Amino acid sequence: MDDTLFPAATILLVRDGADGLEVMMVERHANIGFAGGAMVWPGGKVDPADFDEGWLEAAEGLEGLEADERAARVAALREAYEETGILLATRNGEPIGAKALDLTDMRKRVDRDATLFQPLVRGHGLKLATSALRPFARWIPPPALHKRFDTRFYLTPVPAGQDGVQDGSEAVDLVWIKPQAALDDLAAGRRKIIFPTARNLELLALSKTVEKALADVAARPQGIVQPIIENGVLKIRSDLGYPVTEETLDTAMRG
């Protein structure tokens, strides 16, 4: 059995809406192999280009981090750009804001070839804002699955002036939604949300504002979450602040 772990990264872009914290979610194309049709956060596999040491100059805040962590942060921002058009970057120390919209025509090219992302950033006099990312969670699936992703989740406020537009291929819809509203849609059968996303939505729903979410993630213990299956129940560790730590396997697989 091949038990290879593929590194991946996901980004929770948040903002303060009229009724509290909102998070950006995208609906994956139904024909995509992993989590087809599910509501997820922008993200995907770490590409070899994300490990390029040139990012130490082309990004902010990577110094002192291990190579896997550096690459995951680059991947999270690259995937956000590819899937939503949102680019977290600075020019002369200032966030680029709505100016990122001028760069959306490059999204599909970067999606096809991740090596083009760094030249895009450098060519526009930008630095990738990896320092804006806050580690939110890290999940590894149980053994014996045919494909397993070691996924690092990051939290960050969306840059002012950037609302996002789905790419129309991997992401067929994009919504800003309160975490609890997404969970209510799952419970009512209106949306498909897989087990890790549901648990992290419940965790995010504990924070009512962006400021509180950033404070909560800084105070919360970090550790790897690796679900286990016991007697038909999918369980996660109970010491990382998750309000729900188990779900019957039949409902978890339907989510």
Results as ranks from 00 to 15, higher is better:
Phe117Met: 11
Gly97Pro: 00
Thr10Ala: 14
Gly189Ser: 09
Leu203Trp: 07
Leu186Cys: 10
Leu21Ser: 10
Thr151Cys: 11
Leu204Val: 09
Glu82Cys: 13
Leu183Cys: 11
Leu103Tyr: 05
Glu60Asp: 13
Leu240Cys: 08
Val244Glu: 13
Leu145Cys: 06
Gly164Val: 01
Val158Cys: 12
Ile96Lys: 03
Ala35Met: 11
Leu77Arg: 04
Ser131Pro: 00
Ala49Pro: 02
Thr245Gln: 11
Glu170Pro: 01
Asp163Tyr: 09
Gly189Ile: 09
Phe51Gln: 06
Glu66Ala: 12
Met1Ala: 11
Thr197Val: 15
Leu120Lys: 03
Pro141Asp: 08
Glu57Phe: 01
Thr10Val: 15
Arg220Met: 12
Ala144Thr: 13
Thr10Ser: 15
Arg73Asn: 05
Ser169Asn: 10
Lys208Asp: 11
Pro143Phe: 07
Phe195Cys: 02
Leu155Phe: 08
Pro142Ile: 05
Ala38Leu: 01
Arg91Glu: 14
Thr151Gly: 02
Ala213Val: 04
Leu155Arg: 09
Gly93Cys: 03
Trp41Glu: 08
Arg237Val: 15
Ile236Gly: 06
Arg15Asp: 07
Pro196Met: 08
Leu249Cys: 08
Leu56Trp: 01
Asn231Leu: 01
Leu155His: 08
Lys45Met: 13
Pro141Met: 10
Gln226Met: 11
Gly93Val: 01
Ala35Tyr: 15
Ala218Gly: 01
Met253Leu: 15
Val172Gln: 09
Val210Asn: 07
Arg220Glu: 05
Asp185Asn: 12
Ala171Gln: 05
Arg73Phe: 04
Ala188Glu: 14
Ile193Arg: 04
Tyr242Cys: 05
Ala76His: 03
Ser169Glu: 12
Ala219Ser: 13
Leu206Ala: 14
Ser238Lys: 13
Ala8Trp: 07
Ala213Gly: 03
Ala219Val: 06
